[in-house]
């Protein structure tokens, strides 16, 4: 074939400029992940032991100072990483399981069912995540780490479901879906081979964002006393405990704040960077 136009090479794909975003995100999240895993085997101090004076400022012995019971704050913040990541991952996993299932179902559903589901998602989204989570925690009676995860997962699932529904509908309108149907593909095969792979990049970005939101929401729940109970050193609880002494020992609030912000920013950067990695049309062609 020596065609003039038909076989001409297409324009080279644009080079992704997001590698820096992705790297910074990976480093921040990786650091938290490393610390979280580390706490399973080793911490500088026993998190519940009084190892210093009360409300000590940062020092070589206590990098983030001590709390009002003289416990090492840095140790607690390290454990807080583990709790934050557990809550984020757990909540997003629950939200993904419920949200993607319902969203895809709505996209495929008959008009009436779709309308009902779409309205349900909208109503659930209208409730603030935190309020919804508080209701769930209240319903489960005792506040535990698990009830907080479940609550946040359910609250976020409506957002995921709505996004999934819109994305899936857009994919279902494409000719390649009609082509798949006329090729003889079954609906499950269309969902797993065409719909999910095509909505995944956008969804995964959203998951990473929701991960950050879940962490903030958990901190808020703990701050209100509805999150993981002691001895779980949630950052939200550390913040709450530091509230009374924020003027005399500001570092008690600043340190968990930095931890929280760095993980959420890391998750957001990761989300942004991930967008391009999963998309073959944005990858550099050889």
């Amino acid at each position: 074939m020596t065609d003039l136009v038909d076989l001409q090479a297409p324009a080279p794909a644009r080079r992704t400029p997001r590698s820096l975003t992705l790297s910074v995100g990976l480093v921040l999240v990786g650091l938290h992940l490393f610390v979280a895993l580390l706490t399973l085997f080793w911490t500088p101090y026993d998190p519940t032991a009084m190892t210093g004076g009360r409300l000590e400022p940062p020092s070589w012995a206590h990098w983030a100072g001590t709390d009002r019971l003289g416990r090492d704050l840095f140790t607690q913040i390290m454990i807080g990483s583990r709790i934050a990541l557990t809550v984020g991952a757990g909540a997003v996993a629950i939200a993904a399981a419920i949200g993607v299932t319902l969203g895809v179902l709505a996209a495929f559903a008959t008009r009436t069912l779709d309308d009902v589901l779409a309205a349900t998602f909208d109503i659930l989204i209208a409730f603030p995540t935190l309020l919804l989570a508080m209701l769930v925690v209240a319903a489960t009676d005792t506040a535990s780490l698990f009830s907080a995860i479940l609550a946040l997962g359910i609250a976020i699932s409506a957002i995921v479901a709505r996004l999934t529904r819109i994305l899936a509908k857009r994919v279902l309108a494409m000719d390649y879906i009609t082509a798949a149907r006329t090729a003889g593909s079954s609906w499950p095969s269309i969902v797993f081979r065409h719909v999910l792979p095509n909505i995944w990049p956008t969804l995964s970005v959203n998951f990473a964002l929701q991960f950050g939101i879940a962490i903030i929401a958990e901190a808020s729940l703990s701050y209100l006393g509805l999150g993981a109970p002691p001895p779980n050193a949630s950052w939200g609880r550390l913040l709450q405990e530091a509230q009374g002494t924020v003027y005399t020992a500001p570092f008690g609030a600043v340190a968990p704040g930095i931890a929280l912000v760095s993980l959420v920013i890391g998750m957001n950067l990761l989300a942004d960077g991930l967008r391009d990695v999963g998309d073959p049309t944005r990858r550099r062609s050889r």
């Binding site: 000719d175 390649y176 081979r193 792979p197 998309d279 073959p280 049309t281």
Partner: peptide
Amino acid sequence: DPYSSLDPRQ
């Protein structure tokens, strides 16, 4: 439309 009839991810 050959742009819409092929799944971009396959």
